[in-house]
Simulated scan of single mutants.
Amino acid sequence: MSADFSAEAREAVYTAIARRRDVRHFRPGVELPAEVLERILGAAHLAPSVGYSQPWDFVLVRDRARRARIRQSFLRCREIEAERFSAERREKYLSLRLEGIEESSLNLCVTVDLRPTKEAILGTTVQPEALRWSACCAVQNLWLAARVEGVGVGWVSIVEPRVLRDELGLPPGVEPIAYLCVGYPVAFGARPLLEENGWRSRRPLASAVHDECYRAPLKQGDETP
């Protein structure tokens, strides 16, 4: 048994992980206190990174007009993505609430800096993509810290990176990793939203664990809930 954490502290960590949700419904007009945002960003900044590169930055987006333009990109992309599904699934897809860009307290873009450095970053010679994964670690730290603060986070991946680069003034070599809606939620669901509404079900852990070598996993039904 670890001497570093009490049983209550360990349980709190696992509880935060289990209760993290991708939030889409926010309480409009409820602002996020500066001290809460500072704690959440501080947790993100403590994430592990390849070669201690810390390749992330956090762009805070509050401007309503900018957020509205970014949402227009979401709407365009949603229409394109809808065409990938069968007619029945397309109808269900279009009924889903998949973002809270304008209702959330703020939007937050986590970026990754891929620009050349004077010295090679340790650990990236054969896996340079580890810089991107490091930025994803910052996203997850942020998400869990937000959850324990009672703050909801929603990851909007249905948006054009080109639009984000233009709207946020990202220089060449700095790429958006995650565009997040952040704010106080209407509620935290008992289960993940796409599980609650029957879009997908959770894979059993046993189907994701492989001894020594990868084996073909059990298939989920992609076309039926």
Rank of each mutant, 00 (worst) to 15 (best):
60 L>K: 11
185 P>E: 03
217 P>S: 10
81 E>Y: 07
178 A>C: 07
140 Q>E: 14
31 E>T: 05
137 C>Y: 03
68 A>W: 00
98 L>T: 15
164 L>H: 07
138 A>D: 03
146 A>D: 06
153 V>G: 08
10 R>V: 14
23 V>F: 11
216 A>W: 12
54 Q>I: 04
109 C>K: 02
75 L>S: 10
125 T>I: 05
155 W>V: 15
32 L>C: 03
113 D>E: 04
18 A>R: 14
151 V>Y: 03
77 C>P: 08
60 L>Q: 01
103 E>C: 04
35 E>Q: 12
161 P>R: 10
143 W>Q: 03
46 L>H: 07
43 A>P: 03
90 R>D: 00
10 R>M: 13
41 L>D: 05
16 A>V: 15
164 L>R: 08
98 L>S: 12
28 P>V: 13
195 E>A: 09
77 C>E: 14
190 A>C: 05
145 A>R: 03
55 P>F: 09
67 R>W: 00
52 Y>M: 13
111 T>W: 01
214 Y>T: 11
168 L>I: 06
134 S>F: 00
6 S>C: 01
204 P>M: 14
169 G>H: 07
112 V>W: 01
176 P>V: 12
130 A>E: 10
142 L>E: 05
36 V>R: 02
79 E>D: 07
19 R>C: 10
212 E>W: 11
115 R>P: 03
194 L>K: 00
213 C>Q: 13
16 A>Y: 05
159 V>R: 00
200 R>Y: 03
5 F>G: 09
170 L>R: 06
4 D>M: 15
123 G>Q: 09
181 C>G: 02
114 L>D: 02
221 G>Q: 12
175 E>C: 01
165 R>P: 01
175 E>A: 07
47 A>Y: 05
98 L>K: 15
1 M>N: 09
135 A>I: 01
184 Y>S: 11
168 L>V: 08
198 G>I: 11
199 W>A: 00
81 E>D: 10
32 L>I: 05
91 E>A: 14
121 I>F: 02
44 A>K: 00
96 L>F: 10
200 R>V: 13
49 S>L: 01
71 R>V: 05
65 A>D: 12
145 A>M: 09
225 P>A: 15
185 P>S: 12
220 Q>C: 11
195 E>L: 04
200 R>L: 09
162 R>C: 04
190 A>D: 14
214 Y>F: 15
198 G>H: 04
104 S>D: 11
211 D>P: 10
170 L>E: 03
149 E>K: 02
174 V>S: 04
74 F>W: 12
81 E>P: 00
27 R>L: 04
107 N>A: 13
214 Y>N: 06
127 Q>R: 14
209 V>I: 15
31 E>W: 00
136 C>A: 11
3 A>W: 13
83 E>I: 01
220 Q>A: 14
79 E>W: 06
6 S>H: 09
122 L>I: 12
203 R>V: 15
97 R>G: 13
